[in-house]
Design a protein around this nucleic acid. Structure first.
Length: 576
DNA sequence: AGCCCCTACACGTGTGGATG
DNA sequence: CATCCACACGTGTAGGGGCT
């Protein structure tokens, strides 16, 4: 035990031994003992050294082992990572493949009702049904090709009557088909239509088909472009027109049309509303016309030669339909004949008022009361009645508050007319630039509303108006953010101007909550024009006009296009 | 996508098993 | 699940040029 201790303690034990050796015991034996001790100590040291070396070696070995293990772990880790990456990649590839498989379909998933059968189809159906009935027990129906081969000669040998009967049955199916098709269409949800249209669009792109999109019930077609209107109009003019030059090949026609289109000036290209101009054309946009009757039809009893009459945007209608009889000639069921750029029954094109003479259906010519000057009165025939008609229809009058949006050709008349009808008028404008004009038109300064910030304006004028009349076309009409909040219960927001884009979508809450009406209006009938003349005579309603001689028509058209009218140009050919 | 229109060609109808 | 095959045949439609 001791020795082991000594080994452990090393040098310390040896020192003790030496110290005891020096404590007075001398002689040979002692020396031998000392040598022995020394030897033992050396050996002990040697052993300890070896032991230490061994220990170091072991430690080294351990370290190597650990390093090895660490390296292995690293390798494993890398391998695992690689494997994971590979898996990831494979998954990604799979996903891609799936995406490819699930790529948007290019075939319709709709199942429309089967089209009506023709005579042959009905015959073959009957033939096969008969064959089935006459089959013996366990006998199988022959193959289709054999059936058809058997049926064909029989079909061809049918008598004329038998064939006629089959045709009649086919006709019956065909007559019933539209209803069946419509009933089926009515079952389609907007989502289904959307998906089907997406498929059709893809097919069009891939050149697989030409089918147009399905439309929701009542959904209008996209508005056509000016070019399309132009092409319609060119084709309506016939093959022998200056554009098509007798060309009958449809593809060549297209080229000629494109050529003619490119040759048009920008102004002419713009001039495609509401229909492209029928050329030759005589500055026909001038369409509210006042003149004297110089010739008169046999059936016209309410006019006399020499009488002063006016005509607005409409020069003709059938006079027989319910709309005409009700004094709503502008809604004639056979279509109204416009004063310009429109076709009479005989095919001639109406040319508006830029002329010495113009032809008007007697019933559409409205006598002008004495005392009304022609220039400030002419615009009442169109712009005036356009705003008068809805104001009257929706009850503008004493105690009512009427807001007019837009101070322009229509608006400046609407302000005067609404005042004359007894309503309190307000003008809504984007800026203060027309505040003085508005005052001259009878609007109190406090009633001039600058609707710059819809939210603020809506709050300030909440629940105020019985009528808001929109006379200026603008896209993104602030219906539910501005106009609806400003309306009083049972009020009406009326569109007299046509924005070129769709109305923005709006929440119907205010519309329903206050029982509002959102309405449109198209000019007016002759009786309304006559009423308006009386009103104008009584209250001095006058269009603000700038009169120019007809010789300045070109410049006037350009000025009008540039928005320089304040607020209407009048062309005059009165001999001074 | 919308318009125009002529024409050639594709579709759809009956059936049911085979094939993809 | 869709398509094909055999067949006749009337009907319905795609295609094709231009432009925005």
């Amino acid at each position: 035990m001791r020795g082991r201790c000594g080994v452990r303690r090393g040098g310390a034990l040896t020192t003790n031994l030496r110290a005891s050796a020096g404590s007075g015991q001398g002689g040979k034996a002692e020396k031998a003992q000392a040598r022995k001790d020394k030897e033992a100590a050396r050996k002990e040291r040697e052993r300890a050294r070896k032991e230490r070396e061994k220990e170091r070696a072991r430690k080294q070995k351990d370290k190597a082992q650990r390093d090895k293990e660490r390296a292995k772990a690293q390798r494993d880790k890398e391998r695992a990572k690689a494997a994971a990456d590979k898996l990831k990649e494979r998954k990604l590839k799979l996903k891609e493949k799936e995406a490819k498989v699930k790529k948007p379909r290019t075939t319709s998933s709709l199942h429309p009702p089967k089209a009506p059968q023709n005579a042959w189809g009905i015959f073959l159906g009957d033939f096969i049904a008969e064959k089935k009935r006459s089959l013996a027990e366990g006998e199988k129906l022959p193959s289709v090709s054999i059936l058809v081969k058997d049926a064909t000669p029989q079909y061809q040998a049918l008598s004329a009557e038998d064939k006629a009967a089959l045709h009649e049955r086919s006709e019956e199916q065909r007559r019933a088909y539209p209803d069946i098709l419509n009933a089926w269409k009515a079952t389609l949800t907007p989502d289904m239509i959307k998906e089907e249209n997406a498929v059709r669009a893809r097919r069009r792109k891939l050149g697989l088909s030409h089918k147009a999109n399905l439309r929701l019930e009542g959904e209008p077609k996209k508005p056509v472009t000016a070019y399309i209107l132009f092409s319609q109009e060119v084709r309506a003019r016939g093959v022998d027109s200056d554009v098509l030059q007798g060309e009958t090949d449809i593809l060549e026609q297209s080229k000629l049309m494109a050529q003619a289109w490119r040759a048009l000036s920008d102004e002419e290209k713009k001039n495609q509303w509401p229909a492209p101009t029928s050329y030759p054309c005589i500055a026909s946009t001038f369409h509210a016309v006042i003149g004297e009757v110089v010739r008169i039809g046999d059936n016209v009893k309410h006019l006399k030669l020499g009488q002063r009459v006016g005509v607005g945007a409409q020069a003709g209608s059938c006079l027989e339909c319910d709309a005409c009889k009700a004094g709503l000639q502008q809604h004639c069921e056979k279509g109204m004949v416009g004063t310009y750029n429109s076709k009479w029954e005989d095919g001639t094109v109406s040319q508006g008022g830029y002329a010495d003479h113009t032809r008007v259906k007697g019933a559409l010519a409205v006598p002008i009361p004495d005392g009304l000057e022609p220039e400030p009165t002419a615009p009442l025939l169109c712009a005036g009645v356009t705003v008068y008609s809805p104001l009257k229809r929706f009850g503008a009058g004493p105690g009512k508050k009427v807001g007019i949006v837009g101070i322009g050709g229509l608006g400046h008349l609407a302000l005067q007319i609404a005042s004359a009808m007894g309503a309190e008028t307000y003008a809504l404008s984007h800026s203060a630039s027309k505040i003085e004009d508005a005052e001259k038109l009878g609007v109190k300064r406090d009633n001039f509303i600058i609707a710059k910030d819809a939210k603020e304006t809506a709050k300030a004028w909440a629940n105020t108006f019985d009528i808001i009349l929109i006379t200026a076309p603008s896209d993104n009409l602030p219906l539910d953010s501005l106009y609806f909040p400003m309306m009083k219960r049972l009020g009406a927001v009326i569109l007299c101007a046509l924005p070129e884009s769709k109305l923005p979508p709006f929440f119907a809450h205010a519309l329903v909550g206050k029982s509002l009406t959102l309405a449109g209006s198209l000019i007016g009938g002759t009786s309304e024009i006559a009423e308006l003349f009386d009103l104008a005579a009584k209250h001095g309603i006058k269009a603000w006009t700038e009169t120019r001689p007809m010789s300045q028509t070109s410049q006037t058209l350009q000025d009008m296009e540039a928005g320089k009218a304040r607020y209407r140009f009048v062309l005059s050919n009165t001999k001074q």
